[in-house]
Every structure is written in structure tokens, then in C-alpha cells.
Design a protein around this nucleic acid. Structure first.
Lengths: 188, 188
DNA sequence: CTAAAGAGACAGAACGTTCTCTCTCTTTTG
DNA sequence: CAAAAGAGAGAGAACGTTCTGTCTCTTTAG
């Protein structure tokens, strides 16, 4: 196995464990045992557990954006349609059976201290998301793009939360319906 | 200080610390030092830290329901008005400057393992909330009370999350606006 | 006098991180 | 071409810290 493959394996195993048991509940021992990697090897690729956590959040966010970009790329039509498509894509992402939560705000709950690196990193992730959505809302001609963006984010972050507590409750679909009501009501 | 007062003091101090630093980041030592109470005393009133955590979540939820009940008690008018009043009360609750988060879903993020007592307790808290909102949605004549209730919950839980990451962003007000759009769009 | 509270030592476990030692490849060099 | 050097990985012991929960002893209050 090459160095890059080993790093990817560590990150993959850590991802599964973090999602299944929560970040704080995962010891480094679990990660190295589950990935069959030596302790020193893990620390060579990720100088600290915090680094590994941030890599985990980053990769989840990247995968999410890639999914959105691919889905929105061939979206012609009116600019508002892109915003609608966004909501449908979000519904699919959150509604998928093995959905495990969005990576944008979790870090601030598991690491609430403002000076913790993971907390700070989460805040930049949340800002990124806000800007991504805001740009689409602006294209769609929303009078207050940042506001509409925030409303959509609140809705789907809430859906992700509810989906964790009550799996199979179709929270994603209900969030999408609500988002469409908000968008149509806002763009008039 | 009477026994009841001591118990209340411990819970109060724990509440402040949990909200400021997060539940997992608060050691028992911090709680007893900050409350000036002996270790054994704390363990006499709360047989375990988990018990104290659940008492904390319970008291936050109780305070919330008491606020809602008081606000809705004198709400005459059409049944739908009660649902609108609910949203306004939620906005005030979340938008207050020293708001620290809702107690209904946090537990499932800080304690994601399904067999953890705090996780299970959080699920019952979330169900309680769902039933409270659902009853109001039913009174208001919503075609799918549970669905509308879930949408409102998602919105405000998301707002609570965003408010933590970006304080002063008026997330509560935006959530209320969105909730009203959803309610009006759903009730006809 | 008795039950409760303060003060703090203590055990036991868990966790992140560092360290040592060994083995196996790949690359360099004479 | 062959020997040496080095990098990267496996295995695991060890350290310091932190945390929960128990226990003992002394002091206070009803």
C-alpha cells in the first residue's frame, strides 16, 4: 500500500467511526486498530487527532460540494430554477438511507470552546456554506440573498438533526417542501 | 443552605458551565469547584454525571414549556393564531441575547451512541417537543399536523444551531419569517 | 445525636502523544 | 551489480494528564 493509500484508509476508517460513534467518543486506539495501521503511521500522516478531525470535516464538505456542483452544472433555465434544484439535491443528500449528518455545524457542538481549533475550523466551514448558498440566492434575484440563504441552511441543518433523532421520518422531504414554500414566498 | 437549595445551586452552576463550555468539556471538578460544594454532596444529589446532565436538559426543557404555556394561555382568536403566536414566542426565546441552545437535540450530538442514557433521554425530549407542536398544528387544522410540526421544529432547531455559529445574525427572526411562510402556505 | 456538608485523598480507567525497536522495501553509491 | 543508507510502516510499551466515582475524616446544623 502506498503512502497516499494508507492516508486515505486512515481517513476512511476514521470517517466511519466518527459518524457511527461521534467524534469525541472515538479514541485513537479504535482508529488504528480498525484500520490496521501503526500508531506512528497515523501520527505521521495526521500530526494530531485534531488534524484528523478537521481532515474528516473537510473531506465531508468537499464531497458535498462536489455533489452539488455536479447536480447544478447542467442546470440551465431561469436562475431561480437553480435554487429549486439546490433544494432537491439537498433532499436527496440528506434523505439517503446512510446519511450521517452535515459537517458544517457539528464541530461547534462537539467542540464548543471558541478557542478550540476544531471549533474555529467549523466556523469557516459554516461560512463557506453560507457563501455558496448566498451566491445562488443572489443569482435567483432574492432581495436579501444572505437572509434567504440562511433560512434554507437552517431548514436543512434542522432536518439533518431531526433525521438523526428520528430516522425514517422523511425529514429531508419535509424540509425540501418547506424550502420551496419559502423560496416561492420570497421571490414572490 | 437547605438541601433543596444546594441541589438547585449545583444544577444552576452546572447549567452555566454546560452552556458555556459544552457538556463533555465540563469535568465534575469544575462543577463542584464553581459551586463550592463537596464532591460527595454532588454525588448524593446526583448519583452520576449522566443524571446531572439529564436533569440539566430536563430543567431547560421545562423552562421552555413554561414560557410557551404562559405565552399561549391567553391566546384566544382562531386556532391558527395560536400557531403563529408559537412562532413569535420561539423567536423571542431563541433571539434573546444570552440564548445558549435548545435542549432537545443537543444530547444526541454530544452523546451519539444509541445506548447512552443521555442519548435515549434526548430522544424522548425530542418526541415530547414533537407532540407539543403537533397538537397545536392539529388545532390549527393542518392537513398533516405531524409534518407541519416537524417543519417548524427543523427550522428553529436549525436557527438555534446557526445562532451559535454566527451570533447576532438574526437567525431567530429569519426562522420566524420562514415559519410563517410555511404555515400560511400549508393551511391553504 | 444524627444526618448532611466540606475537604481532599484515592483507585481505576481512558485518552492523546511520544518513544523505542524491528522489518521491509526503495534509492543511492562505490 | 552489490552493498549501504534511508524512508516508511508495524507493534507495542510508557508517560502524563484527565476524568468519574468512592472513601475517609472532620465540621456543622437541626
Amino acid at each position: 500500500m502506498s503512502a497516499a493509500e494508507i492516508k486515505a484508509k486512515i481517513l476512511g476508517v476514521a470517517t466511519s467511526l466518527f459518524e457511527a460513534k461521534g467524534i469525541n467518543a472515538c479514541a485513537v486506539d479504535m482508529i488504528i486498530n480498525a484500520s490496521g495501521v501503526a500508531r506512528a503511521t497515523m501520527y505521521r500522516h495526521f500530526p494530531s487527532k485534531d488534524t484528523l478531525i478537521m481532515a474528516f470535516l473537510r473531506s465531508k464538505a468537499d464531497a458535498f460540494y462536489e455533489w452539488l456542483n455536479r447536480g447544478l452544472r447542467n442546470q440551465k433555465g431561469k436562475p431561480a430554477d437553480k435554487l429549486i434544484a439546490l433544494c432537491i439535491l439537498m433532499e436527496e443528500w440528506i434523505g439517503t438511507p446512510n446519511f450521517k449528518g452535515l459537517p458544517f455545524h457539528i464541530g461547534t457542538i462537539e467542540f464548543p470552546e471558541p478557542d478550540h481549533p476544531v471549533n474555529q475550523f467549523s466556523i469557516t466551514l459554516a461560512k463557506e456554506l453560507q457563501e455558496y448558498f448566498s451566491a445562488l440566492a443572489k443569482e435567483a434575484g432574492a432581495p436579501d440573498p444572505a437572509g434567504l440563504s440562511q433560512q434554507i441552511i437552517m431548514l436543512f441543518e434542522g432536518a439533518a438533526l431531526v433525521e438523526r433523532v428520528a430516522p425514517g421520518s422523511n425529514a429531508a422531504a419535509k424540509a425540501k417542501d418547506a424550502a420551496l414554500l419559502i423560496i416561492r414566498g420570497t421571490l414572490k
